[in-house]
Nucleic acid binder design. Structure first.
Length: 428
RNA sequence: GUGGACGUAGCUUAGCUGGUCAAAGCGCCAGAUUGUGGCUCUGGAGACCGUGGGUUCGAAUCCCACCGCCCACCCCA
């Protein structure tokens, strides 16, 4: 197949039928966010490259090898966003959203881009539904955020989504942990891959999720972060667990859960799918990020959900979607004059919020009727010379076959409504 | 980055021990006594069998390369 007839690798088209289902799912998530007082923020699809390097950490896999980075015609290095948090933080600061008072609660539903080898649930262009909260340092915020996600999963009809939880501490207690990690890995430095050797000094935690088999083996016996949490972090983590339990939300502690981005502090979590081999999303707290990006010290936390993955999970779980709103009236017309009249009547129906349609392909009467049947029209009507001169036409109930004469004059819509609602009453 | 499968009409596929093999279903279009759909019947359009080489008298069918796509590992959303 020609290059131009094929979407680029790792991208997909959402056809109307698919898009309809996406919109329904998105609406559930948006609804959940708005119930919790979140407002939608829309930020650019590309940002200055430094934003992501600074925000996500330049030793991360994403920044090191998965970003779509290019120079624009003005010589600036820009990058298609690989995630939503960095842009949200930037926009929050740039627009002074904190001036309205804390907490600032934002959500977004955006396409993101990463250069990866595509497979199920992993696209180069993928959609993320994310939320961010700024200015809330208390563990209750962590619990509420997680509860919100779990509630959304439930409302979507996804019953088997899990929750994995960990705390990776604050910079203070992480210092201790880094020291211990460094000591451990330095003692085994001859077994580390070259990438990890460079990570050893800069960011030893990254070694824990290196893909190299030898590094993985080493990581198994490495010191565990939760043994090194400082008093405050330990208490924070305990409280989060306590609140979740009080809310009836089950979770699994996973000391190995580190997350792929550097900005996380304290609470981190993922939502593993029960039926698919990957997480539907994840997130955590990032108390140092806002300051790192030039703002004043501000706690923050958020999560991102992979919309593509949620859609896969809904499919896998055979979650049913409501039927599409079908065409209610189809007006078939014969001849130029009747066609114009049909268009006018259809327009009048539209003004009353009634889904109506007529032919625009120049088809014959029979083909038009066939089309009406195909699109599932509830009622049909035929317009020709006779109807135009008599001022009335026959409205037909497509499923029962019942017909009734209605005026096509000024009182057309009234007449239509009388007949159509009467028909619906019969069906009940 | 490593590994595995696949690539035939719009869609789903058959054909794959090489020689009427270019098919079927669905979809689409048009007809079945002239202005009424759904069922049935009939007909029609539509594929250089992913691309390029090679083996052969002859390849969709065997070999190689490339491209594409899907999946697993890894990681993440």
């Amino acid at each position: 197949m020609d290059l131009i007839t094929k979407a680029p690798k790792g991208t997909q088209d959402l056809t109307p039928e698919k898009t309809r289902r996406w919109q329904i799912a998105e609406q559930v998530l948006i609804g959940e966010a708005e119930l919790n007082g979140f407002g939608e923020i829309r930020t650019p699809a590309f940002e200055h490259t430094e934003l992501f390097q600074r925000g996500m950490g330049d030793v991360t896999d994403v920044v090191e090898k998965q970003m779509y980075t290019f120079e624009d015609k003005g010589g600036r290095s820009v990058t298609l966003r690989p995630e939503g948090t960095a842009g949200a933080v930037r926009a929050m600061l740039e627009n002074g959203l904190y001036n309205a008072g804390y907490p600032v609660k934002l959500y977004y539903n955006i396409p993101c881009y990463r250069y990866e080898k595509p497979q199920a649930g992993r696209m180069r262009e993928f959609r993320t539904f994310g939320v961010e909260v700024f200015g809330a340092a208390e563990p209750i915020a962590d619990a509420q955020m997680i509860a919100m996600a779990m509630s959304a999963f439930k409302r979507l009809g996804l019953e088997d989504v899990g929750l994995q939880l960990n705390s990776i501490g604050c910079p203070e207690c992480r210092k201790e942990y880094h020291r211990a990690l460094k000591e451990y890995f330095t003692g085994n430095r001859d077994k580390l891959c070259s990438t990890c050797l460079s990570r050893l000094d800069r960011n030893p935690m990254r070694i824990l999720d290196c893909k190299n088999p030898e590094c993985k083996e080493l990581a198994k016996n490495a010191p565990v972060i939760t043994d090194y949490l400082c008093g405050d972090c330990r208490e924070h983590f305990n409280k989060v667990q306590e609140y979740l339990t009080a809310l009836g939300i089950g979770f699994e502690l996973d000391p190995g859960l580190v997350r792929g981005l550097d900005y996380y502090t304290r609470t981190v979590f993922e939502f593993p799918s029960g039926s698919l081999g990957f997480a539907l999303g994840g997130g955590g707290r990032y108390d140092g990020l806002v300051e790192e990006m030039g703002g004043s010290p501000t706690p923050g936390l958020g999560f991102g959900l992979g919309m593509d993955r949620i859609m896969l999970a809904l499919e896998e779980g055979k979650v049913e979607f409501p039927e599409e709103d079908r065409c209610e009236v189809y007006i078939a017309a014969m001849g130029d004059k009747a066609q114009v009249k049909a268009l006018e009547l259809v327009d009048r129906l539209h003004r009353c919020g009634i889904i109506a349609d007529c032919d625009i392909c120049g088809r014959g009467l029979k083909a038009q009727m066939k089309y009406a049947g195909k699109i599932g029209a509830k009622f049909s009507m035929v317009l020709g010379e006779d109807e135009l001169s008599s001022g009335s036409a026959v409205l037909k109930d497509m499923s029962s076959g019942e017909t009734r004469k209605v005026s096509i004059g000024d009182d057309f819509v009234d007449g239509y409504l009388t007949f159509s609602t009467a028909q619906e009453d019969l069906s009940f």
